[in-house]
Design a binder for these strands. Structure first.
Lengths: 367, 367
DNA sequence: CCCAGCTTTGGAAGTGCTTCCAAAAGATGC
DNA sequence: GCATCTTTTGGAAGCACTTCCAAAGCTGGG
């Protein structure tokens, strides 16, 4: 005589389900984990009971027993940054598709990174770590290496870990070339301080474009803002740099490759405050293609951020199950998105956007 | 004779530490949890050993034994939305200050909510849930209620849960009044569809302002866009609504209260495409004060988003330790931030911002 | 009908912690 | 020095699962 208590007293364990379904706990566990060796009838019986009792397995007990966390953590530089947000969308979508949890650490300065990494490294806590554009302290690299947790770097490179990034050099080259070909000379550049890899590479790409096209380079063609937050990839810095350019008066360049869209936004503000019109007086090409760029009708180099997020997750998951893979660096090529700020469209219908932003299909399963 | 093996074989448990320090596991546990009844000497000895072995407790074992997860989950409508991102900053900062984990679920449509809530509700998984501006299906409310997990609603209200929100009515009233007082009549409104509470309340506040100031209301003073994502609080919707207004020609209002900054952005784009200048021809006041608003020099109603995030976390934590608190609804009053788009500053130095954005102190401990 | 060889099942042992209880060690007072 | 309290300590039991092993149940061939 088995008494059927429906009292969902909240303490319901796998034993309760087992008793109620007249099976052993092992069987319940197998059913819940889709283990094949259970007869369909038994499986159904267990499933019914579980549903009736509204049984929910205790996640942490599972994780403890299974010795894996089904959690991936992402450590991102503070997420006021649109670029990261957009990558994060891809990350979050893929992670939840795979049934993992995303735990998020927002970092404001490099010092915090170490703390968060330690945190993430607590045994069993996470199965994998995504690290966004940070130059890691040597110390952190060591710890990461020795614990052997799968790590994927996004928007940086290190010889020790997998990485997903964008071809900064090529992008800068393409952007600059576009401007040169439009005849908007001289072409200047608003860059971020050379503390970050993207800034360095984009500068090189820019210079290379000048060189290739026989345009002379000089140091006053490149300026950087003073505001250093986000490694200098922020609106104020763009504003400041452009103000400096404007001070050059007649000698100021007629076109600019700007190392991020957000800086471009600041730069454009500076221009408009000085009665300089984009693209009529000054042509602009940005970098990133954050959502804002569309709104601003900014010509820019698109980074497939959403895709990068997806890929980062896939990569970390692959490495989880296959521990000694070769280290792999994936590089996306940015593509030029021509909108209005470069002036290329001046004679066409100004609203048209050559290649529309990739939007999710309406099934909504992908996002 | 205790052999000292330094071999960090990754499987190091509390028993290893105990053996090595010549104490019982209970003592090690107490040390690690700052339990008072351990002598300073013993504590130090344990700490030394733990450090030497580089011992990391197993998070999930702790959570299982302690019967709490030290995790708070946030379910947010897809985070392409700047408003949520800014709240999330506060949430994330406070959560990590308190040593909790943040697990993030991004939701794209209401159907997903149920799934994620179930997920979050798995016993022991989270200690509290933050739900961002979603009208919850009755079903979900029930489940949430019966499991008795602390829930805090942000940017919505429900009689069943704590909530943090903003005085939409008052904000809309203030914004509209500001425009009326500037003499920019008639004042129209770009709203979102009345499916969400904020849209409803803001409309009421707007109407009330007209009424109070003896300005007549008519239905063609309010328009809504067609794009429905984000409940209509998106750039395209703002653009569309404004295009409709522009079709009115001469009769179009001379000023607009727009129910979100992001819609204001679209609206301004529509205006500028039609050679209408802001604020010279048309005055605009937005709502939210997302970071973008500053860039756009948009006059707007500021919601203290960062603070709201902080508070939401605090509230959920309080409720965690004190289970049967009264249900509390906290309402912030939005404040008017006068920038250029309303035209109030037309004769002053255009750049000045009356009340600068609250930024973290440089200690950086708060963010 | 019996036995070998599967498949399915039960349940003990293991996962790595916390906590409770009782015992040991120290204080205190007389 | 001893009895009594109070601190401090060790370690068993418990947390809620998974997994492994052995036992039970089937299947079909002889």
């Amino acid at each position: 005589m088995v008494p059927k208590k429906e009292i969902a007293t909240h303490k319901l364990t796998i034993y309760d389900v087992a008793r109620e379904a007249n099976v052993g706990v092992g069987t319940v566990s197998r059913v819940l984990n889709n283990h094949p060796s259970v007869t369909p009838q038994t499986r159904q019986r267990v499933l019914d009971v579980a549903a009736r009792l509204n049984y929910q397995p205790h996640t942490y007990a599972q994780r403890l027993a299974k010795r894996q966390s089904e959690t991936i953590s992402a450590i991102i530089p503070f997420f006021t940054n649109y670029f990261f947000i957009e990558i994060l969308q891809g990350v979050q979508d893929r992670i939840s598709q795979l049934g993992y949890d995303l735990v998020l650490y927002g970092v404001n300065n490099l010092d915090q990174v170490e703390g968060y990494v330690s945190r993430a490294l607590q045994r069993g806590r996470v199965d994998g770590i995504l690290l966004f554009s940070m130059k890691l302290p040597e110390k952190v690299i060591l710890r990461l290496k020795e614990t052997n947790v799968p790590v994927v770097l996004v928007d940086t490179i290190s010889p020790y870990f997998d990485s997903i990034s964008v071809a900064n050099f090529d992008g800068a080259y393409a952007a600059t070339t576009h401007l040169i070909e439009l005849g908007r000379l001289p072409v200047g550049m608003v860059n971020a301080p050379l503390v970050s890899t993207p800034a360095v590479e984009r500068l090189q790409g820019y210079k290379h474009a000048l060189e290739t096209h026989g345009v002379e380079y000089s140091d006053d063609l490149v300026k950087t803002g003073y505001s250093t937050k986000q490694d200098g990839f922020n609106r104020e810095a763009g504003y400041e740099a452009m103000v400096d350019f404007i001070k050059m008066g007649e000698n100021m360049p007629k076109a600019f490759f700007i190392s991020s869209d957000i800086q471009a936004m600041g730069a454009i503000a500076a221009l408009s405050e000085n009665e300089l019109r984009v693209p009529d007086d000054i042509a602009i090409v940005g970098f990133d293609d954050i959502e804002l760029a569309r709104h601003l009708k900014l010509t820019t180099m698109r980074q497939p951020m959403y895709q990068m997020g997806i890929l980062a997750v896939d990569r970390v998951v692959t490495r989880m199950s296959n521990t000694n893979l070769e280290i792999l660096h994936t590089t996306f090529s940015p593509t030029l998105i021509v909108r209005e700020s470069c002036g290329a469209l001046r004679n066409s219908d100004g609203t048209r956007e050559p290649s529309p932003r990739v939007t999710p299909s309406s099934e909504g399963s992908l996002r």
